[in-house]
Computed example of a mutant assay.
Amino acid sequence: MSDPQDARPLPFATQEPLRFRDMDPLGHINNSVYSTLLEQNRIAFQDQPGGFREARGQSAVLATQTIDFVREMRWPGTAEVRLGIGRLGRSSIQIHQEISFEGALIARARCTQVLIDDTTRKAVPLSDEQRTMLAPWMVDAQDG
């Protein structure tokens, strides 16, 4: 399986400031903070024009998340978090992300979000409109 992050840069980026409170006793940014940085990036993607939008009565929920830690990160500074869309399923969206700091790759992450109905809490299919919204952000439509 090829890694789309090796092929080209992920197209959506945010700058996420690191906080003093993000450090662990060893002076590293605590590994639990990485999930928050990734979440902030996904929320910013959904909030910006041209990002993914749920239809009324739908929510995108996190089903899986995997983080590969490449090197440590230390306060102070600002992390760059990038995002690209991988494979689209019937009701799922595969998201590739990476965290960089001072020009160095810190972590790679993959997650799957599933679109659900707010009332039934069951998966609902992505609409053609939603697929069109995600198309410009695709990094590897064949990645699985």
Rank of each mutant, 00 (worst) to 15 (best):
L18D: 05
N30D: 04
P4T: 13
V139W: 12
R56I: 15
P4K: 01
Q94P: 15
P4G: 06
M133Y: 03
Q97D: 00
S35V: 02
A104L: 08
Q113M: 01
I93E: 08
I67G: 02
P11F: 02
G50R: 10
W137E: 15
A60N: 01
T64R: 08
S100R: 02
A79P: 08
A7G: 08
L37H: 07
L10A: 13
R56W: 14
A107P: 07
V139C: 07
S59N: 10
R8N: 03
A55D: 13
R53D: 02
G51P: 10
S100K: 01
E39I: 04
S100G: 05
R110W: 06
N41R: 03
M133R: 09
D118A: 11
P125H: 07
G144W: 11
F12T: 14
L83N: 05
S2C: 12
V61G: 00
I95N: 00
G84Y: 11
F101L: 08
S100T: 06
A63N: 00
L134R: 14
E72M: 02
I116N: 05
P49Q: 05
Q142E: 15
Q58S: 03
D68A: 01
R110P: 13
D24C: 03
L115V: 13
K122G: 15
I43H: 14
L37P: 13
R108Y: 04
S92A: 10
F52V: 01
R82L: 11
L26K: 00
F101N: 12
Q130R: 07
R19W: 15
R56F: 14
D22N: 02
D143T: 15
V81W: 03
T119E: 02
L10F: 06
R56Y: 10
L88H: 15
P49A: 04
P9Y: 10
G57P: 04
L26V: 12
E80D: 08
I95K: 01
T14Q: 11
S91M: 11
P136W: 15
Q142H: 12
D22S: 03
A107C: 05
V61A: 00
T14L: 12
A60W: 00
D47V: 01
F101I: 07
S127P: 11
T64W: 00
Q46R: 10
H28G: 07
P49G: 11
D6W: 10
R108C: 00
H96Q: 13
I29V: 13
D68S: 01
A123S: 09
I67R: 01
E39C: 09
M73W: 06
A44C: 06
E39T: 05
S92M: 04
D47N: 07
A123R: 09
S35C: 08
Q15E: 08
T64G: 03
Q5D: 14
M23F: 14
S32H: 04
A109K: 03
R19N: 09
Q15K: 14
T120M: 07
I85E: 08
A13W: 11
L10Q: 11
S127R: 03
A55P: 12
Q142P: 15
L62S: 00
D47R: 04
M73Q: 07
A107K: 00
V81D: 05
P125E: 10
V70G: 10
Y34A: 00
H28P: 08
